[in-house]
């Protein structure tokens, strides 16, 4: 009873093993939620259809935040869309990942001096992979997805853990940019 091989493992090690098995499934079946805010979204149709065929990596579009694993932020985020993006991100079920597309999510891009567009996405929500370019071509989009899979394999895609641990910092940044994060607009009363 005492000296079976399985019971020598601590609970932590067993959890780790399960997590690794789960990571295998998670990286081979990434379901995307496409938040098509800007022009980088036009790179997704060629990535999904017969030219590059995302489905061979196990990726596919999903209808709602609850079902999805990856949130694709394709392009600039105005304050109004950032607010909705935060709502969406917080609704997704864990583990969840974010891929930011284009220079707008990295440093504001050509909208760096606009009164309505934020400059760094990773101050407000944690981004796992950035795909650079204005706009990125489809090869680099696909490369970004493969990178995300490698990160999941190496346990480095832990943006959702960071968001939990540093929640105060993220909330503070969100508050600085948006004022109140949760507001009621007239269309959802």
């Amino acid at each position: 009873m005492k000296s079976t091989k399985f019971s020598e493992l601590t609970q932590e090690q067993i959890d780790r093993k399960w997590w690794e098995i789960g990571d295998f499934f998670r990286r081979n079946s990434l379901w995307m939620l496409m938040y098509c805010t800007g022009c980088c979204a036009i790179e997704l149709p060629p990535a999904m259809t017969s030219a590059y065929d995302m489905e061979r990596l196990g990726m596919g579009p999903m209808a709602t935040p609850r079902q999805a694993d990856v949130l694709l932020v394709t392009g600039y985020l105005s304050l109004k869309t950032l607010r909705r993006l935060i709502y969406t991100y917080e609704q997704m079920s864990e583990p969840k990942y974010i891929v930011g597309f284009g220079s707008c999510t990295i440093n504001g891009g050509i909208y760096h001096d606009s009164h309505a567009v934020i400059n760094q996405l990773d101050r407000y929500i944690p981004v796992d992979v950035y795909v650079a370019g204005c706009m990125p071509n489809t090869e680099s989009v696909m490369n970004g997805f493969v990178d995300l899979m490698t990160l999941i394999k190496n346990k480095q895609a832990n943006g959702w853990i960071k968001y939990k641990e540093n929640n105060d910092w993220y909330k503070q940044n969100q508050k600085e940019a948006l004022g109140e994060v949760k507001i009621k607009d007239e269309f959802h009363e």
Partner: peptide
């Protein structure tokens, strides 16, 4: 792929 999808979903929170 469908097996991967289902087991992935079961592994999520």
């Amino acid at each position: 792929q469908e097996f991967l999808d289902i087991f992935k979903l079961l592994s999520k929170r």
